[in-house]
Amino acid sequence: SLVRQALGIEQVTLPYERLIMRVATVPLTESVARLNRLYFSSDGWLAYFYPLGAEQARVFVGLPPESDEEVFQDGIPTLVDELKKFVSESSDAFDSLQSAAWQRIKVSAMRVAAYHRGNAALLGSAAFACHPMTGMGMSYTLRDAEILADVICSAGGDPALLDRLMHERYEPRGNAHRMLIDYGDALAATFHDRDAYLAAFRDDLHTRGEAAEPALQLI
């Protein structure tokens, strides 16, 4: 974030070394429109399918680093073959993966020391990053935006009041973000083992609280 750099706000980034993520935007299919679904395998793979709107969906695929080059060098049929081993309820999306443009993305957690300075505020991925396995990054960001808008309107153009309200109402969002980041760390550390993952899974963080995304179903 150029804004974060300009404000001189420090960040701490912790990469997830054992997971390479690929993401693609594809046409929306019936199963994805019905429910967000996150799948994981004991071989270190995960797949996340969720709608972007009335016509498009997004697919995240996470795989061990040693598998990434082989799978994407051999082409999408190899990827689909791997997904078929553990993706059970989203097979209607497989055909769209054939022509998808896959981007490799870095997966890391990120925290910042402060959420605002003066009349400039950080929002979304400029403010925090959690493991995509939580499936709640956008939900938290929408809630952050709601709080931020309320603070700005309440300040009524008074710089001193704005700063005070930011400290009182917006900066505390860091606690919620830290909890979500720690939760993502727990999921990433356990998803290779079903029992350990289910012990770490928190229904309240996935399906209640921030209330912006549809419920997520684990398969």
Rank of each mutant, 00 (worst) to 15 (best):
C130A: 15
G184T: 02
M110V: 07
S108R: 10
H131I: 01
H192L: 10
M136E: 15
H192S: 13
A149Y: 05
M133I: 14
A120I: 14
E168H: 08
A113I: 08
T134Q: 06
H116C: 13
V107A: 04
F94W: 04
R178I: 09
A114Y: 10
E171S: 14
A186R: 07
F201H: 09
L161Y: 00
P172N: 03
S108L: 13
S139C: 14
H131N: 04
D193N: 10
P172V: 00
I181G: 01
Q103M: 13
P159A: 02
C153P: 08
A149C: 10
E146M: 14
A176P: 15
A109H: 07
D185V: 06
D195N: 07
I147G: 05
D163G: 06
R173K: 10
G135T: 03
K106I: 09
P172L: 03
K106F: 07
E146W: 13
G118L: 00
A188Y: 08
L97K: 07
R169I: 05
S99W: 11
R111S: 15
A186F: 00
A155F: 01
R117I: 01
S125Q: 13
H116P: 11
I152K: 04
R169T: 06
L162G: 00
G135W: 02
T141L: 09
D95H: 09
A176R: 11
E171F: 06
L162R: 01
L122V: 05
G135H: 00
D95V: 08
A120R: 13
Y170A: 03
D144K: 10
D158G: 01
I152G: 03
S125Y: 08
D150V: 08
D144F: 06
D193E: 07
V107H: 05
G157S: 05
G174N: 11
Y197I: 05
L161N: 01
A200P: 01
A196V: 02
G174Y: 08
A188W: 07
T134I: 04
A121H: 10
R194S: 02
A113D: 13
C130D: 15
A176H: 15
T134F: 04
M166V: 04
A196G: 02
S99E: 10
M136H: 11
M138E: 12
R117P: 02
G124T: 07
D182T: 10
I147L: 11
Y115H: 09
R202N: 06
V107P: 05
D193S: 06
E171Q: 14
Y115L: 11
A109L: 01
G137Q: 08
Y170Q: 04
D203E: 12
H131E: 03
D193C: 06
M138V: 15
A109K: 05
G174T: 11
H116F: 14
A127K: 12
I147M: 08
L123W: 04
Y115A: 06
R143N: 05
Q98F: 12
I152R: 04
A160H: 06
R169C: 11
A196D: 04
E171K: 10
